[in-house]
């Protein structure tokens, strides 16, 4: 089994453990877009400290780990128009759908939620078609 797949499984297990901890201890769903979105649109005002603490861990710990590992690459495109359009689409889309890869994907599919499964089918389908169009046909990314 390729090393990347093993690291994928191990990292995935950490993500799932984090989501399990958040559910069983704090009684909440670990959905990145919901946690961040609630800080932005004011809907999470009543528990903003918990949201901010989670976001702080999500930001600081990988930064320290990346430095300890001698640096990590994101390989994000240098095309600013693509970055801005993608950011807007991810922001609007995840809030409109009320979930992203962590909320609908990890937390939804694991309880066999129909909404989570349908959302995942649509975002993976749209993502796949977008890569085909913009990489293989238009050659933009």
């Amino acid at each position: 089994m390729p090393f990347d797949w093993i690291m994928g499984l191990a990292g995935g297990a950490l993500i799932g453990t984090a989501a399990a901890l958040y559910l069983l201890v704090n009684g909440r769903i670990m959905g990145a877009s919901g946690i961040i979105g609630g800080l932005v649109d004011g809907s999470g005002r009543h528990n903003w400290i918990e949201r901010a603490a989670l976001v702080a861990g999500l930001l600081i710990v990988p930064m320290i780990a990346a430095i300890a590992m001698g640096g990590a690459q994101t390989h994000l495109t240098g095309n600013w128009a693509v970055i801005i359009a993608a950011g807007l689409l991810v922001g609007v889309g995840t809030r409109l759908a009320n979930g992203c890869t962590s909320g609908h994907g990890v937390c939804g599919i694991s309880r066999l939620s129909l909404r989570g499964i349908v959302a995942t089918v649509f975002y993976i389908g749209a993502g796949g078609l977008t890569v085909v169009l913009f990489k293989h046909i238009l050659g933009v990314i």
Binding site: A32, S33, I36, T74, H75, L76, T77, V82, I83, A85, A86, G87, L88, L89, V90, G91, V92, G93, T94, R95, L96, A97, N98, C100, T101, S102, H104, R115, V118, A119, T120, F122, Y123, I124, G125, A126, G127, G128, L129, T130, V131, F134, I141
Partner: peptide, 19 residues
């Protein structure tokens, strides 16, 4: 759910980033 996930997937495909 459908429109939002479609928009999200488009942005995810363009950039390779989710939230």
């Amino acid at each position: 759910l459908v429109l939002g996930s479609t928009f999200f997937g488009m942005g995810w495909g363009l950039s390779g980033l989710c939230p």
